[in-house]
C-alpha cells in the first residue's frame, strides 16, 4: 500500500502495477494506445475520475514518446502535418480542460464521460470484433493500403492549401486543424490519447500514406498529452505524480511483454477478444445509465 499525495487515498502498489501492466500488455499485443482502457480501469480501482483522467495523460505521454523515438529513426513522422495537428490539438485540449471544469461545476461530468465512453467503446469494440471474426472465418479484409484511393476528399477542395512533402500531399490546413481540435478536446475530457480515432481519420479523410500515419499521430498524441498534464496540474491540480510513476512503470513493462509475445501470436483472436471485452464494458456503461439506480442521490464532485 502506498498513499497517493494528490488523490489522497492509499492504493495497493501491486494492484496498480498489475492493472497498468495488463493495459500496457494489451496495447503492446494488439497495437492500440490503451488510454481508453486505462482511465476506466483506474476509476474502477476507486481513483477519483478527475485524477484518473489527468494522471492517465502522463502515462500516455510516456508511451507515445517512446513510440515517436522509434518512428523517428524510421523517418516515419511527417513533422509539418504533426505540428499542424498539434496546433489544432492545443486549442482543442484547452477547450476540453475548460469544458471539463464547467461540467464538473454543473455536476454533469460523469454523465458526459459515461456517454462518450459508451459510444467510443461500442464503436471500437464492434469494429475490432467484426474484423477479428472476419479474419478468423478466412475472409481477407481489405487492407488499409488498398482502401487508400487517390480520391479527392474535402481536404483537397478547401482553401488555405499547403504542401506536405513527407506525405506527398497538397491539401487545405483546415481539416488537420479541425481534426487536431476534436482529438485534443476528447483527450482532455476522457483521458485518452486518441490515436485510434486519429489514425483512421488521417488515412480516409486526409489520405495520408500509411507509413507516416502512426509516427505522426504518436507525435500529436505526445504533444497533446504533455500539454494536458501541465494544464490539469495548474488548472485543477489533479495530476498525481506517485500514481503517474506507477502507471508508467507498469505500462512500459506490460507493453514490452505484449510486443514480444504478440510477435508470435495470431492477433485476430486477440482483437476479437478485446473487441468483445470493450463491447461488454460499453454495455456496462449503458446499463448504469438506463437502470433505475439503487441510491438516487449522489454527492457533488470532490473539487468544487
Amino acid at each position: 500500500m502506498i498513499y497517493l499525495p494528490i488523490a489522497e487515498m492509499p492504493v495497493n502498489v501491486l494492484l496498480v502495477l498489475l492493472v497498468s501492466g495488463a493495459v500496457g500488455f494489451m496495447s503492446g499485443l494488439v497495437g492500440v494506445g490503451g488510454g481508453f482502457i486505462m482511465t476506466p480501469s483506474l476509476i474502477f480501482l476507486g481513483i477519483p475520475a478527475p485524477v484518473a483522467v489527468a494522471t492517465g495523460a502522463s502515462q500516455i505521454a510516456a508511451t507515445s514518446f517512446s513510440g515517436v523515438l522509434s518512428q523517428t529513426r524510421r523517418k516515419a513522422v511527417d513533422w509539418r502535418m504533426g505540428i499542424l495537428l498539434s496546433i489544432g490539438g492545443m486549442l482543442g485540449s484547452a477547450s476540453g480542460v475548460w469544458l471539463f471544469e464547467r461540467l464538473l461545476r454543473i455536476g454533469q461530468l460523469d454523465l458526459i464521460i459515461s456517454l462518450l465512453y459508451l459510444l467510443l467503446l461500442a464503436c471500437v469494440g464492434g469494429l475490432m470484433l467484426a474484423e477479428g471474426v472476419a479474419v478468423m472465418r478466412g475472409r481477407s479484409t481489405p487492407g488499409v493500403s488498398i482502401l487508400r484511393r487517390p480520391a479527392r476528399t474535402i481536404a483537397h477542395t478547401l482553401p488555405f492549401r499547403m504542401r506536405f512533402p513527407r506525405s506527398g500531399l497538397y491539401i487545405s490546413v483546415i481539416p488537420p486543424l479541425g481534426l487536431g481540435f476534436i482529438i485534443g478536446a476528447l483527450a482532455a475530457i476522457m483521458g485518452i490519447g486518441g490515436g485510434f480515432i486519429l489514425i483512421p481519420a488521417m488515412i480516409y479523410l486526409l489520405r495520408m500514406p500509411t507509413n507516416v500515419v502512426i509516427g505522426t499521430s504518436l507525435f500529436q498524441v505526445l504533444v497533446i498529452a504533455s500539454l494536458i498534464v501541465v494544464m490539469q496540474s495548474t488548472a485543477t491540480q489533479t495530476v498525481d505524480l506517485v500514481l503517474a510513476a506507477l502507471l508508467m512503470l507498469g505500462g512500459v513493462i506490460g507493453a514490452q511483454l505484449g510486443v514480444r509475445l504478440g510477435a508470435g501470436l495470431k492477433s485476430e483472436h486477440l482483437r476479437a477478444l478485446l473487441g468483445a471485452l470493450l463491447l461488454a464494458a460499453s454495455a456496462k456503461f449503458l446499463f448504469d445509465l438506463v437502470i433505475r439506480p439503487v441510491e438516487p442521490y449522489v454527492l457533488g464532485g470532490g473539487l468544487l
Binding site: 510516456a62 504533455s226 512500459v252
Partner: peptide, 17 residues
Amino acid sequence: YGLLTVLLALAAGWVAA
C-alpha cells in the same frame, strides 16, 4: 510540478525506447 511530471514521462518513454 506539471513540467516535472512531463519530464518524468519523457524519461520513462526514452528508457523504454
